[in-house]
Amino acid sequence: MGKYIVRRLLQMIPVVLGATFLIFAMVFLLPGDPTAGRCGDRPCSPEYVAAFKAEYNLDKPFLVQYALYLGKLLQGDLGTNYYGNTVAHELAIRYPTTLKLALIALAFEAIVGIAAGVVAGIRKGKFADNLVTISTLVVISIPVFVIGSLAQMIFGLKLGWFPVTSGDGTWAQLILPGLVLGSLSVAYVARLTRTNLVENLRADYVRTAKAKGLSAGRAVGVHALRNSLVSVITYIGASFGSLMGGAIVTERIFNVNGIGNFIWRSINQRDGVSVVGAVICLVIVYLVVNLIVDILYGVLDPRISHD
């Protein structure tokens, strides 16, 4: 197990280096003036351009630029925007709200997704299965921002069940945005659970479980489900990536004052330093979560980690 974790950590290093390099290249290597769109709607002042070039070492050779940039990242320096605020500070004051939102979405994903998938899987081909399969297909097909706007219109405005906006970021205000954010993943979790369960129900060890005289509930609920959940739990962890992308949309619709909304506002205020800094932060969080998920996968499936 220890060896497995070390191996995983070592394998992650080139990916992190590659990903940060890729983002760096996207920002500084693509054609165009890197300072364009970093100072609101007006062109940057010469002083700012000079300061920017010095900050990112744009006069040095490219690889040196990257190395220095990486060094800054490691110190948690995500840059300082045109308004003089560090991006790290902007993110620090907003992350609790986004975290709450993500937790609601994850809980929704796990509970409703797995339950729906199990019902569909054990009633394969029956009404419940068709209902789950088709409704998840519909949910997958409706982009999150459409679901968000519709949910706001129906549950917020028309029915009044939930607050329409979530400016303060309390748990109650975040429920509806959280459900919207988790809606896409809930559909995938349900389908994945169903597929895995259907496959595992046909596995030889389920037949063995029946031959051992276990009840159908135990054969399915302990033996088949435990195997099915390996990849489902892994997926739930890894769905963090789409959750963070979705958070930008969800927070904008419900006016949640979190990291996603910060990114959206920065895009529209043409605050490029904040956009890039915040997105890099999210990508790094995503990479770390992925690593944890990978290790978790090894814990859940003994065949992986003991090799």
Binding site: Y205, K212, G213, V230, D301
Partner: peptide, 20 residues
């Protein structure tokens, strides 16, 4: 009676045992 009265072993023990 399954397991207690009549028990069974299978051809492919690797797939007949639960891997996890």
């Amino acid at each position: 009676t399954r397991g207690a009265g009549i028990a069974m072993i299978f051809q492919d023990a690797l797939s007949a045992l639960n891997p996890v």
